[in-house]
């Protein structure tokens, strides 16, 4: 899960759509930039775009936007001058789902919060109000990155800090050729987009569960 991502395929779809709009309709269309440019922030939030376009709503699990049928999806967006009819945000929150509200009422937690609790070294915390809606949510992104993004740019940076700080030549050499560093480089090279999170919080989420359950 941490190394097999699919998100760039949506970007390919967006390029095809941009070409279509520019060629067929003669309007401008650009792929909305989704990679971070400052800190963890991209120039435009795909999550906000997805919510405003009615594709899903923000969840207690790492703020992931959950689609009502599929749950976790990756999103890409295009910005265009074509005057398309806008969609509207969903009227009903996808998260928390009914079983999660019931669980919260009984146990004071939800499946995702229980899988990665802030108070026990995890990243998530949250609360529901009496109407069963999210009244507070907390996501420790830094901790999630260090816990779950073990293959990719973050881990290369982590390894480089250690390697460059190591004064002993032989120890440095063994760090450079270690499995961890080789895998990290391999992820930069092979997996590229696929450096996802551990998604234990999504594994237990009831939304989209039936789509994930096959034979």
């Amino acid at each position: 899960m941490e190394i097999t991502g699919y998100d760039f395929r949506e970007n390919v779809a967006v390029h095809v759509m941009c070409d279509y709009i520019e060629r067929e309709h003669g309007h401008r269309a650009l792929q909305a930039p989704s990679l971070p440019t400052a800190g963890h922030n991209p120039p435009m939030s795909m999550m906000l775009a997805a919510v405003l376009a009615g594709l899903g709503t923000r969840s207690l699990a790492a703020n992931i936007i959950l689609h009502p049928r599929y749950g976790l999806l990756y999103y890409a967006a295009l910005v265009t001058t074509l005057d398309l009819e806008p969609d509207h945000p969903l009227e009903e929150d996808v998260c928390p789902s009914k079983p999660c509200i019931q669980m919260y009422e009984k146990l004071g937690t939800t499946p995702c919060l229980a899988s990665c609790p802030k108070g026990e070294g995890g990243c998530l915390d949250g609360a529901l109000d009496e109407d069963g809606r999210i009244s507070y949510s907390y996501y420790d992104r830094e901790r999630c990155t260090s816990r779950s993004m073990n293959f990719g740019i973050g881990s290369i940076q982590k390894a480089l800090v250690q390697i460059t700080a190591e004064g002993d030549r032989e120890r440095r050499q063994s760090m450079i050729y270690s499995d961890f560093f080789t895998q990290s480089l391999s992820s930069l090279s092979y997996y590229k987009e696929s450096v996802a999170q551990c998604f234990e919080c999504m594994r237990v989420c009831p939304v989209g569960m039936h789509e994930r359950r096959l034979q």
Partner: peptide
């Protein structure tokens, strides 16, 4: 997965432990 409803896992290129 989509056509037959069975699990199908793409084997990632690249390496795991021990190269």
């Amino acid at each position: 997965e989509a056509e037959f409803g069975y699990y199908a896992l793409f084997v990632p290129p690249g390496v795991r432990r021990g190269n």
